[in-house]
Design a protein around this nucleic acid. Structure first.
Lengths: 121, 121
DNA sequence: GGAATACTGAACCATGTGGTTCAGTATGAA
DNA sequence: TTCATACTGAACCACATGGTTCAGTATTCC
């Protein structure tokens, strides 16, 4: 099994586990923005928004650059491919398990029917 | 834009943001297990594991059923399709934005080359 | 019935999170 | 030079999280 750095997963999933941060990502996907822009858009103090951006930056989902007084935020290098892959693999096993369960239930039903036939004779 | 229940996203991403819980999911995808089984496998107290299972259960990723003394955990109804969809959509916009950036850079390069030719004359 | 097993719940602890305020510093504009 | 803007950092707050221990309760086994 491929072993990803678990802390990387922790950071990116934790970053996504907050509605404000998902909103910031969606916003930045539409275009760069300063901390002030974002703080304004999400009705929050500058300091509060800076913390969110910090979390996103640590997760690699956002990069920032300061020019003059303003720090511009843009979407970062992390494209969540490993996270997608993890979920996809999980879903695959999920499906396999539930198809197997279906087979078991079908088999039970078949046996039940056979039993009923025998009983009816 | 489709509006998912934000709390649902919060719960499932937060559930995935912990290595132990991802491990439990992988374990349960391979087969049902009791709380004791899991606590043992992940070297943790029963109480600690019960809390993790509780988080996964709230997120819909696990269901449990108590028969006699033992509570059996199995993978639950949440297949993370909306989470996958969110990430997929984000990646799409990400790609679009970076392709656009590439175009801009290409255009700049072309202009630069043209400028150099002019300068060379 | 008595002992072992499997869980449950309350309480506690250290640390993290999501926010704030307040007091800076650095930069840009007039 | 002075003032407004944009950020930064420290300190604080309430609450959540990831774990523990300890004291139950309910079941199962002998």
């Amino acid at each position: 099994m491929v072993q990803y750095s678990s802390t990387h997963f922790n950071a990116s999933f934790a970053a996504l586990a907050d509605a404000t941060r998902r909103g910031v990502l969606e916003q930045l996907a539409r275009g760069d923005a300063s901390i002030s822009d974002l703080a304004d858009k999400f009705a929050m103090t500058l300091t509060g928004m800076k913390k969110h951006v910090g979390v996103l930056e640590l997760a690699g989902l956002v990069t920032t650059e300061k020019l003059g007084r303003v720090r511009t935020c843009r979407i970062g290098p992390c494209r969540l491919e490993e996270e997608m892959a993890w979920i996809a693999r999980y879903r695959q096993v999920w499906d396999a398990r539930f198809n197997a369960l279906d087979d078991v239930l079908d088999e039970l039903k078949r046996q039940e029917k056979a039993g009923a036939r025998k009983q009816g004779q």
